[in-house]
Design a protein around this nucleic acid. Structure first.
Lengths: 297, 297
DNA sequence: CACACTTACGATATTCGTAAGGATT
DNA sequence: AATCCTTACGAATATCGTAAGTGTG
């Protein structure tokens, strides 16, 4: 039994005329006749009664009509679904991004993606850097955005841009007018930062450890927004990736370039190694690669 | 997209090897390769990643696998269902029979049918003669068993045998020893019969009307069994198709051939005119035609 | 270098359309 | 006589299998 045969049968069953069915199927009468005959032979009995002047269904034909309808509808739907996925008229991508990206540059990139592919669903997992890598490795997401990982095992990393950390200061701090400050100056304030195991926290500790200094944490939170508000209300100062500069500003804090040591880290797209991307994921990767590098408006 | 292509895809997706899939499909490698390629082209994108040494699914391929499974399962089920209907390994027939047949000769015929086609379901409608004809005419049943109808409009009639009416007498009636009796003798008893619009009642009235006699009804019921019991308990006598002879005997009444006038009527199979029978109905008709004519054991 | 998939190509099968045939209204 | 489906047959198309090619472990 072939799809063509079933389509032929349904066309005849619905029009009750070979001639009309021919037109609908773009087929000659003899070809249609043979198709029906073939179907009847494979099924082992008559489906249609052709009495030269009229076409009727046999009881078995009646049984087949609704089954054929459903079968062909499912068939066409499946075909169409796959086609839509390939042409990005439909689809689904899962993406993991570390918080600093997720709540700053990502929304704009997603908006751009949505404009081009309005019916492709994007699931964003806003998780800490380490989990971004894990989710890609375990194929829970097709794409990740994170700092360059230590080990490349099981994953590929496509660099986007380098990000440097900036000092975050209360608006009334005397340091906010400086062109840039160093850590020695920054640490005159109480220090506020993210809780472990945030990558931001780890990078700060690593950087200072290299200078035999310990990070004197006065307050900690696991949300960047909370850190920003704490700084803005004068509780102390912090240091965050410059990605978060605008966010900190909006929360009422001030950002100033930070040196000695400068903390610099590469941000990029994380992919499963040797893992094929879906068409939707490829398109999203492209949009991310062009959009995330752009500075905020 | 063809059935073959989808089968080919599923085989490769499940074995993750063209070579193994080939064996399962009884196909050469190049043919399989082409089939997959064709499928990918019709869908507009890659389903499988072939890296000479390993075969993997693309995300779109992953999406297709469960859909293909279901599609092919439905396809095969439908094909099998139709095949079973044609080979009578499965099916359904609806049959209408008038009561005198339904509760006498029909059960044996149905048992014989069931023995040959154990999985073909038979629905029996035990209704009065007129309704048998109506149900066939309105295509509520494919087959009917009834007396030959007055009009053949919309139906075909295949005669089975002629049935004559017999007198039904209480066991203590002086008439039970007679070889046969006539109506004049019979009507010495009070008369018991079926209610209108039973065909038996109508035939009795018609027969006597032709002799300018009126049917003197003392008791009436709409069940043959009740009539039989009433006669058996000495309330009166009746006349029924000889088909019911055994039933009457079992109920305790006695039957004697009845003449002057003899009521004779053809019993047969009723079919929708120009209506095609299902394979199951054809088989049932055949069994009915051979079995119903046989006298009871 | 051996294995696994792809490409090339000739042979086979299938399917198609034109033309002729048959049956019913 | 006209319409509608079937059969017959030559042609186009598709599919298949053998053989050669290519890339990877």
């Amino acid at each position: 039994m072939t799809v063509k045969q079933l389509r032929a049968f349904l066309a005849v069953a619905q029009t009750l005329s070979f001639t009309q069915a021919c037109e609908r199927l773009h087929l000659s009468q003899p070809a249609l006749s043979l198709a029906i005959k073939g179907l009847e032979e494979t099924l082992g009995g008559a489906l249609l009664i052709r009495s030269t002047r009229s076409v009727r269904l046999t009881p078995e034909g009646e049984v087949l009509v609704p089954l054929a309808k459903r079968l062909l509808a499912d068939w066409d739907n499946t075909e169409e679904l796959l086609r839509q996925r390939f042409t990005l008229q439909l689809g689904r991508v899962a993406l993991a991004a570390m918080p600093s990206i997720a709540c700053n540059r990502l929304p704009r990139a997603l908006r751009r993606f949505r404009e081009r592919f309005p019916r492709v669903n994007v699931t964003v997992h806003d998780v800490i850097n380490e989990q971004v890598i894990d989710m890609v490795r375990h194929q829970q997401v097709e794409l990740g955005i994170a700092f360059e990982p230590e080990t490349r095992e099981g994953i590929d990393f496509l660099p986007l841009f380098d990000d440097t950390f900036v000092a975050v200061l209360p608006p009334d701090s005397p340091l906010v007018e400086a062109e840039s400050i160093d850590w020695k100056a920054l640490l005159r304030h109480d220090f506020i930062t993210l809780q472990r195991p945030s990558m931001v926290r780890i990078l700060l500790e690593q950087a200072l450890a290299r200078q035999q200094t310990e990070l004197p944490v006065a307050f900690e939170s696991h949300q960047l927004a909370t850190v920003g508000r704490m700084v803005a209300s004068g509780l102390g100062a912090s240091a965050v990736p410059s990605l978060c500069r605008e966010q900190m500003h909006e929360l009422g804090a001030r950002c100033v370039p930070l040196y000695a040591p400068q903390i610099r880290r590469t941000v990029g797209v994380v992919l499963g190694a040797g893992q094929e991307l879906s068409t939707a994921a490829r398109a999203l990767r492209e949009v991310l690669q062009t959009t995330l590098c752009e500075p905020p408006a």
